[in-house]
Amino acid sequence: MSIQIENLTSADLDQLVSTVQAAEAAGVHPQTVRQWRSRGKIEPSGLDKYSRPLYKLIDVLRTEQGTRYRR
């Protein structure tokens, strides 16, 4: 599943995405999403059938925006 940011609707922002999908949407490496989680910047909103974390797309995009250009 590829996420096209420009084509998102408000309903799409509530969808749950995997770590890899979250990273793709935010334009970062999956390890960055894992670091955000370990640092408390983002919390999973659910788990998949293998107990891997799922994140709300809106939370991922807000986290990415909040970490952009920080020094």
Rank of each mutant, 00 (worst) to 15 (best):
R68Q: 15
L57Y: 04
L16M: 05
T32R: 09
I3N: 04
I3S: 00
T19N: 08
I58L: 09
L57W: 04
R34M: 11
A11C: 11
T63F: 05
I3L: 07
E6F: 06
R37Y: 04
A11T: 14
Q31I: 00
D14R: 14
G27P: 04
R39P: 02
V17G: 01
G40L: 06
I42W: 00
S38G: 07
E43R: 12
A11S: 15
R68W: 12
D48A: 06
T67W: 12
R62S: 15
S2R: 13
L54Q: 10
S2A: 09
L57A: 07
T67C: 15
R70P: 00
S18E: 02
L16Y: 03
A26F: 00
I3V: 11
D48N: 15
V17R: 02
V17E: 03
V28G: 07
Q65W: 15
L57D: 06
L61Y: 09
I3R: 02
G40E: 09
T9M: 07
I5W: 07
P53I: 05
A25F: 04
G27A: 10
Y69F: 14
L54Y: 08
A22G: 02
T67F: 13
K56G: 03
R71Y: 15
L16S: 01
Q21Y: 01
Y50A: 09
A26Y: 02
A25Q: 03
S2W: 08
S45A: 15
Q35F: 12
D14G: 12
E43P: 01
E43K: 12
V60C: 00
V60Q: 02
Y50K: 08
I42D: 02
R62Q: 15
D12K: 08
Q21T: 04
V60E: 03
S2C: 06
N7A: 14
Q21H: 06
W36V: 05
A23Q: 06
I58E: 12
T9W: 04
R71Q: 15
V17Q: 00
T67S: 15
K49L: 10
T19C: 08
A22S: 10
A23T: 06
S18M: 03
T63M: 06
Q21W: 03
N7V: 11
L61I: 08
L8F: 06
A25M: 04
L47F: 13
